[in-house]
């Protein structure tokens, strides 16, 4: 068996662009899923009961569906049932954001619950409203506590963006598979893909570890 690694070099521009797309998908998904996750978590904890039930239903639905199914569903069923036709990128982004928001909501809920009641009481004793206490006292502490979990979610998401390749979003997995199909260099392309994912994923995980050490709160 002979290896021909030149195929990787020949397609470096396409691979670089695809890597860029993977990073863009990850960043955009998280940029949506963090604030939305906070909103869903707060609704689950404090909202009027029917809204609370809706938020819980949302979380349980998307946490328990395979992501790839959500991707397919958004791509095929959504346009037929609603008439909304999104681009593959927007469809993939929506599926990822729906999924990660559900996970983030659970993470934020756990973080908020871990802050002891006395902190809220101290804030309220100063005359703060519940919203002010949440924003100024509870969330800043909760976010620092759950940073390691958000980091894991981030790294998972970075890899899970590969699932939107099934609807032809030109991210890393999709482009690498296309090149593989055209060049028949299966092992080379899979290895190159693995190397790119790992080399990008590992520093991200380390970066978040560093952020966590930097902003950790000692009590």
């Amino acid at each position: 068996m002979t290896f021909d690694w030149s195929v990787v070099g020949q397609h470096r521009e396409a691979l670089a662009a695809a890597t860029g797309m993977t990073v863009l998908l990850t960043v955009t998904t998280m940029a949506i899923a963090v604030p939305c996750g906070i909103v869903v978590a707060v609704l689950r904890l404090y909202a009027w009961a029917p809204v609370r039930t809706l938020a819980t239903a949302y979380v349980e639905l998307f946490r328990n569906l395979p992501l790839i199914l959500v991707v397919y569903w958004a791509f095929y069923v959504l346009p037929i049932s609603t008439g909304i036709g999104l681009s593959p990128f927007a469809t993939g982004l929506a599926a990822l954001a729906l999924n990660v928001t559900a996970y983030n909501a659970e993470t934020f809920r756990a973080g908020i619950n871990s802050i002891r009641r006395g902190q809220v009481e101290a804030a309220m004793a100063l005359g703060m409203s519940r919203v002010q206490a949440l924003r100024r006292v509870v969330l800043p502490q909760a976010v620092r506590r759950i940073l390691p979990v958000l980091a894991s979610t981030w790294v998972s998401l970075f890899k899970d963006t590969s699932l939107v390749s099934v609807i032809a979003v030109s991210e890393l997995a999709y482009v690498a598979m296309q090149i593989r199909a055209q060049s028949f260099r299966v092992l080379e392309m899979l290895t190159a893909m693995a190397a790119i994912y790992w080399l990008l994923g590992y520093p991200q995980a380390k970066l978040v570890d560093w952020i966590q050490r930097r902003y950790a709160v000692t009590e």
């Binding site: 006395g118 902190q119 005359g127 703060m128």
Partner: peptide, 24 residues
């Protein structure tokens, strides 16, 4: 009610057994 109660709390300082300083 929340709102008038908050206005009243501003005029009462409270110190807790476990301090409850904001650690961040």
């Amino acid at each position: 009610d929340e709102r008038p109660l908050r206005a009243m709390r501003r005029r009462m300082g409270m110190v807790f057994q476990s301090f409850e300083l904001f650690p961040h």
